[in-house]
Computed example of a mutant assay.
Amino acid sequence: MTQSLQDIGYRIREIRELRGLTLDECAKQSNITRAYLNTMELGQANFSIGKLQSLSNTLNVQLSDFFMKSPSLYSLEEEVIKILSANKNQRNLQCVIALLRAMDAS
């Protein structure tokens, strides 16, 4: 497959792992098979925009995030806030938000 499919597949896996989802969980929530999601992540499938849209909905990111070098920081910042807020660790929350904002500014 082409390098761009491999890059997209890598970003799918990266975002999925950042969201804390297993391959099985993500596939089920996206209504695709585990095997097909695995081939997508390996860059070995010619997938449709519909499949990517389903994944973007499951992973709570914009479709364009799959075509960038890193997922949008806004989407990730929201997810980090949710996770850290659940743990009620204010210091960690402030540190992570500051880091994400600094990365977004660069």
Rank of each mutant, 00 (worst) to 15 (best):
M1F: 02
Q3P: 03
Q3G: 04
S4N: 08
S4W: 04
Q6A: 14
Q6Y: 08
Q6I: 14
Q6G: 04
I8K: 01
I8S: 03
I8F: 04
R13V: 04
R13N: 13
E14N: 07
I15A: 01
I15W: 00
R16Q: 09
E17M: 12
E17W: 04
T22I: 05
T22C: 08
L23Y: 07
L23G: 02
L23C: 03
D24Q: 10
E25V: 03
A27T: 09
K28P: 00
Q29K: 13
N31E: 14
N31K: 12
R34K: 15
A35G: 12
Y36T: 09
L37H: 01
E41I: 08
E41R: 09
E41Y: 08
E41T: 06
L42W: 03
G43A: 11
Q44C: 03
A45W: 03
I49Y: 08
I49D: 10
G50Q: 13
K51Y: 11
K51G: 01
K51I: 07
S54T: 05
L55S: 00
S56K: 04
N57W: 06
T58A: 06
T58I: 06
T58W: 00
V61S: 00
V61C: 12
D65E: 08
F66Q: 00
F66W: 02
F67V: 07
F67L: 13
M68Q: 14
S72R: 11
L73G: 02
Y74L: 12
Y74M: 08
S75H: 11
L76Y: 11
E77C: 13
E78R: 10
V80Q: 14
V80D: 03
I81F: 05
K82H: 09
I83T: 12
L84A: 07
L84S: 10
S85G: 13
S85T: 07
A86M: 06
A86K: 11
N87W: 03
K88V: 08
K88E: 15
Q90I: 10
Q90N: 09
N92E: 12
L93G: 06
V96W: 04
V96R: 01
I97C: 12
A98T: 13
A98E: 14
L99G: 08
L100G: 00
L100E: 00
M103V: 10
D104K: 15
D104R: 14
A105T: 09
A105E: 14
A105M: 08
